[in-house]
């Protein structure tokens, strides 16, 4: 009996644990699956039984508002990615390679944009941009998105930076490479996986950003999440499901690529 319970109990607990984990996964993915499925349902009112139809996706092609918003979203995300990756990598390089006064403060300054609720940051941007005449629009959304992406880029590239010491650059110097040659031929290639991961992350931060864009979008100009939000409020149709499905699969795809590159999550 004793030995029986010793062998059976852990196995039972293991089974329970796995079942629990499975339930968590169902909880996490069920609504997304429903959303995706309903985009393929014939009925406007999500009526069951399910009837397969691609008409909502076809309708998307004719929806100029959503198409313009998609174009704007991609445009801002690309510009954001380029700017945030370049200047973020520069900062990460300096923070990683040099020890100087103010370095710790600079590292701490990365956390307010991450931890302060976006509601507060977004409204504050609205106040300043409106006041100074920068105004609302795609340009101010871009300003805001870069600010939110920068800390992530600096942290992700910084982590890559920390994984190799200054010896590689010193080795290059001892072999006669100028600092510029050492940067282009040694540091940059070694940092590359981190930079690519960071740029994917920056793209996702912008592409999925709703709160900041919401406050900085003027009437008439919009990006996808803002457009989706107003569509939901107005009483949505499966068309919104269709575009939302596309959005969530794009952003999951990007993050999957990011995860593969950066191996985040402590798995080495």
């Amino acid at each position: 009996m004793q030995t029986m319970s010793h062998r059976l109990l852990p196995r039972f607990a293991d089974g329970m644990g796995r079942a629990f984990l499975a339930l968590i996964l169902v909880f996490l993915y069920l609504p997304i699956a429903v959303l995706a499925l309903m985009g393929f349902n014939e009925s406007v009112h999500y009526a069951l039984p399910f009837e397969f139809s691609t008409k909502w996706y076809e309708a998307l092609a004719g929806n100029d508002r959503l198409l313009t918003a998609s174009f704007n979203s991609v445009w801002i995300a690309v510009a954001n990615t380029v700017i945030a990756t370049v200047i973020g990598t520069m900062a990460a390089f300096a923070l990683g390679r040099f020890r100087f006064r103010g370095r710790t403060v600079m590292q701490l300054l990365l956390f307010p944009p991450i931890t302060i609720p976006w509601l507060i940051i977004g409204t504050a941007m609205l106040v300043l941009f409106f006041w100074t005449g920068v105004g609302r629009g795609l340009h101010s959304m871009l300003l805001g998105h870069v600010a939110l992406s920068l800390p992530y880029v600096i942290i992700v590239v910084g982590a890559r930076m920390a994984s190799f010491g200054p010896e590689l650059e010193e080795a290059a110097a001892s072999l006669g490479a100028t600092p510029v040659q050492a940067f282009w031929r040694v540091s940059l290639p070694v940092l590359m996986p981190g930079i690519v991961a960071a740029s994917l992350f920056a793209f996702a931060v912008s592409f999925d950003q709703f709160v900041i864009s919401y406050f900085l979008a003027p009437p008439g100009t919009s990006v996808l999440p803002v457009e989706i939000f107003s569509a939901i409020r107005k009483g949505f149709t499966p068309e919104v499901n269709a575009i939302s499905t596309i959005v969530i699969f794009v952003s999951m795809g990007i993050m999957l690529a990011f995860a593969r590159l950066s191996k985040f999550g402590g798995e080495r």
Binding site: P31, I32, V34, L35, A204, F207, D208, F210, P225, I228, F229, I232, F236, V240, S244, V247, I248, S251, M252, M255, F258
Partner: peptide, 11 residues
């Protein structure tokens, strides 16, 4: 890490 708004919408 995916779109927060869409996930709320799905609910």
């Amino acid at each position: 890490w995916s779109n927060a708004l869409v996930r709320i919408f799905s609910w």
